[in-house]
Nucleic acid binder design. Structure first.
Length: 466
RNA sequence: GGCGCGAUAGCCAAGUGGUAAGGCAAGGGUCUGCAAAACCCUUAUUCGUCGGUUCGAUCCCGACUCGCGCCUCCA
């Protein structure tokens, strides 16, 4: 069975494949760089990463565009308050975002594009929409007239037929003819950063950047567009309206949305004191891999309950996987193949792939890995795991890590050197041989203090950093 | 009010019209000089509540309860 994804547009799980050649043209809504991104944001960004990785594992090539929104009301407000230029201000949080992504081992999209580098293209698009009669101007701003777009609501499945157009509603400090209408271009207020274009003196609205950049780089019809579920309405609905008004073609074939994240069972909010950035979490000594594992292990369409217990659980699960990998790499095995283990490895790999193909069911995929892990460990204990079983076991682990990527520890800065560790271990081994357990335990404690864990195995001593 | 999602063991979380994956935690073992690692056993006769369809439902339908998201710029 090929890859199937839930499409918000059709409200069904459908087989996914790109329309042209073998390349998936996908667009994902990136961050607005007005502050550090929080753990809820990263739930979605980890989901994008899993999606990317599994599309490639499915044999597709990628042309993935992600935007960075580096101009909006909040950014302007904060930049002005700190007496910084827009560029100075957004550079700080753009870098922070990219650092965070790297810490979580998120693959870089093929293109990372900034709104402020596409102002002219946006103005051109707005001009085109004006020519098509989709817009009106009010107090120096340009608005999209929803009433002109008949399919409005097809993504969020909202029925707007009952809404009365024409009631003058003042929201967001701008005047609109219809409550559903949204700003394509916002007139600058005094002291605000602004661009002079044929759309006026001001800045682009939020929605237009995604339409313009997506179409510019990927063409009129995307294979896939993804984002957090809260973007379905109005952002993605508005993107569809603008884009399809511009090109006359369907904007995206698949719309894929990730569910929300809760913290300790509650909505994350600053007032509840459960609002976390990645920095907050790392500052508690939690490894990035644990965060990545937790965020990846719950299927993207289910609300994820982010807890510190969950992080601890993720950490232990990763340890077990790493120990297994370590064991495979260091064990001395008899020649030959254990057919039962070989079959299990193949079945686990197939099961893993089938689970991922099923709308990225990461929870089920993990179950196949752990079931095999237990079976293989048992065989290793019994000396029944043979040299010829390494390939199958490693194939499964490689597939797992191609998606989850948590096996390699994040290098800790500083600490005891490998040479010192090896020397101490040699001394301890000698002490043990002499049955001087007091000295050997002393060394073990010393290493533990330095963050190094010692394990005595049949095949000798092995160590790892904690 | 409209649209949508969810409710499975202490926690996290899969899943199927025929009788409940996996992870973590807990208790008991095996192994070990002691540890660590690993493995074994135990922990949901039960899947929010109440009805219905069915030979049979946790899974299908209806109602209800609770929780969550969106309904103008929030992933």
């Amino acid at each position: 069975m090929p890859l199937r994804l839930y499409n918000t547009l059709t409200q069904e799980v459908q087989p996914f494949a790109p329309l042209n050649d073998n390349t998936v043209r996908m667009y994902t809504c990136g961050p607005t760089v007005y502050d550090f991104a929080h753990i809820g944001n990263f739930r979605t960004f980890v989901f994008f990463d899993l999606l990317r990785r599994w599309l490639r594992a499915s044999g597709f090539k990628l042309d993935h565009v992600m935007n960075i929104t580096d101009v909006d009301d909040k950014i302007i407000r904060n930049a002005v308050a700190q007496n910084k230029t827009l560029d100075e201000y957004t550079a700080i949080y753009t870098k922070a975002f990219l650092d965070d992504c790297a810490a979580l081992r998120l693959e870089k999209p093929e293109r990372l594009v900034r709104a402020t580098e596409h102002i002219k293209e946006m103005a051109d698009a707005i001009h085109k929409l004006e020519e098509g009669g989709y817009t009106y101007r009010s107090d120096g701003s340009v608005y999209f007239r929803i009433a002109k777009f008949k399919d409005y609501g097809k993504l969020s499945h909202n029925d707007f037929s009952g809404m009365v157009a024409g009631a003058r509603v003042d929201v967001d400090n701008y005047d609109k003819a219809d409550a559903r209408d949204f700003a394509l271009w916002k007139a600058a207020k005094p002291g605000e950063p602004a661009w002079d274009t044929e759309a006026g003196h001001g800045r682009p609205g939020w929605h237009i950047e995604c339409s313009v950049m997506a179409i510019q780089y990927l063409g009129a019809t995307l294979d896939l567009h993804a984002g957090g579920i809260d973007l379905v309405f109005p952002h993605h609905e508005n993107e569809i309206a603008q884009s399809e008004a511009l090109t006359g073609k369907p904007f995206a074939r698949f719309w894929v949305h990730s569910e929300f994240l809760l913290v300790e069972g509650q909505k994350m909010s600053k007032s509840l004191g459960n609002f976390y950035t990645l920095r907050d979490i790392f500052a508690r000594g939690i490894a990035p891999e644990a965060v990545r594992y937790l965020l990846a292990s719950v299927p993207y369409r289910k609300a994820l309950n982010f807890t510190f217990d969950g992080l601890a659980s993720a950490k232990t699960a990763i340890e077990r996987l790493r120990n297994f990998k370590f064991r495979l790499d260091s064990a001395k095995l008899a020649e030959g193949v254990n057919d039962k283990i070989a079959e299990h490895a193949a079945a686990a790999l197939a099961g893993f792939r089938a689970a991922m193909d099923d709308d990225l069911n990461t929870a089920e995929a993990l179950a196949f890995v752990f079931e095999f892990l237990r079976d293989a460990n048992t065989a290793l204990d019994a000396g029944e795991f043979m040299e010829g079983n390494l390939a199958g076991a490693n194939a499964l682990l490689d597939q797992f890590d191609a998606v989850f990527e948590v096996l390699k520890p994040t290098a800790a800065a500083g600490g005891i050197s490998e040479t010192d560790i090896e020397n101490l271990i040699a001394e301890r081994t000698a002490a043990k041989k002499a049955r001087n357990f007091a000295r050997s335990d002393e060394i073990r404690a010393q290493l533990l203090d330095a963050g190094v864990v010692i394990e005595d195995t049949k095949d000798g001593v092995r160590w790892k950093r904690k």
